[in-house]
Design a protein around this nucleic acid. Structure first.
Lengths: 137, 137
DNA sequence: ATAAACCATGTACTTAGGTACAGAGTCAAG
DNA sequence: CTTGACTCTGTACCTAAGTACATGGTTTAT
C-alpha cells in the first residue's frame, strides 16, 4: 500500500490539488489522517486508496449536472447505524427517479440528433432547428 | 397569435427576464424583431412562439450539465446552405457519442442506487460507500 | 545534513451563469 | 391623454466551484 499524499491523489484522480482541499472543506471527502510533526503542528495528509475513486465519482457526477450539494447527498447514502432503512430507501428512490428523468431527456436529445444525421442524407437544407424536437413531451 | 413580449416568454419558459436578455447577448437565442418607436429608438422585443421551446431546451440541457457554449453548438446543428452535410453528420455523431457516455454513467449510478435499496432489506448496516461502485469501469 | 520537491494555511482572484437595480422610454386601458 | 404596468440599456452585484499565490513547514534523495 503506497502512501498517498495529496499530490499523488490529485494526479491519479485528474484534478488540481487545491480542488481536493476544497472538497475537504466542503465535506465531500473525509479529513484524512495526518502524521504529527515534531513540535505539534499537523503533518501531511495521507489518503486511503478509496479517495481516488471518490473524487472520480465527484468529477463524473459534476459533468452530469449534479451540484456539489447533491453529490454530497449521493455520497452519504448508505446503510449504517443511526439511519433507518426506510429512510435510506426513500432517499435512494428519489435519486433514482431524478436519474431516470435525466436519462429520458438525454435519450430524447439523442433521438433528435440521430434523426438529424439521418435526414441529412435524405433531403436537402432545412432551416428550423431539429434539436427542439428533443423536448416535445 | 398573441404577441409575446419578453415578460410573457419568461413566464412561459419559467425563467427570469434578465436571463432571456443574457441568453440573447450570449447568442443562444436570436435577436427578435423590435417595433421602432416614433423618433428612432428601438421598441420592445417580440418573440416567435418557438422561443419558449428554445429556452426550455436550454434549461433542460443545462440541468444535464451542458455548458452554454455546448448548448449553443447543439442548437446550431442543423442542415442549411453553406454547411456541408458531412460536417453536420460528423458534429452530430460526436454529440451522440457524448450523450451515450452520459447515459451510461447515469445508468451505472442508477444501478448502484437500486442495489443499495435492495441490500437495505437484505442485510444490516454497511459502512463503505455503495455508490462508489457506480464508477468501476 | 542540506537542497529540491512537496505540502499546509490563509487569503485573494477567477469564470460561468445569472440577478438586481437605476433611470428612462413605451404601451394600452380607461 | 394620462396612469400604471411593462420594457429598455447599462452597470453592478451575486453564487458556485474552483485556482493561484505567498509564506513557511516537511520529506527525502544525495
Amino acid at each position: 500500500m503506497e502512501t498517498l499524499t495529496i499530490g499523488r491523489v490529485a494526479k491519479k484522480a485528474g484534478v488540481n490539488i487545491e480542488t481536493i482541499r476544497y472538497y475537504e472543506r466542503q465535506g465531500l471527502i473525509p479529513r484524512p489522517p495526518r502524521r504529527q510533526s515534531e513540535w505539534g503542528a499537523l503533518g501531511y495528509r495521507h489518503y486511503p486508496a478509496e479517495t481516488v475513486k471518490r473524487i472520480q465519482f465527484i468529477r463524473h457526477a459534476k459533468e452530469l449536472g449534479f451540484s456539489l450539494k447533491e453529490i454530497a447527498e449521493l455520497l452519504s447514502l448508505r446503510i449504517e447505524q443511526g439511519v433507518t432503512c426506510g429512510d435510506v430507501r426513500k432517499r435512494a428512490e428519489a435519486k433514482i427517479a431524478d436519474i431516470d428523468t435525466r436519462i429520458k431527456i438525454l435519450q430524447r436529445m439523442k433521438k433528435a440528433l440521430v434523426n438529424l444525421a439521418k435526414e441529412c442524407k435524405a433531403r436537402g437544407p432545412v432551416s428550423e432547428c431539429p434539436i427542439l424536437e428533443a423536448l416535445e413531451r
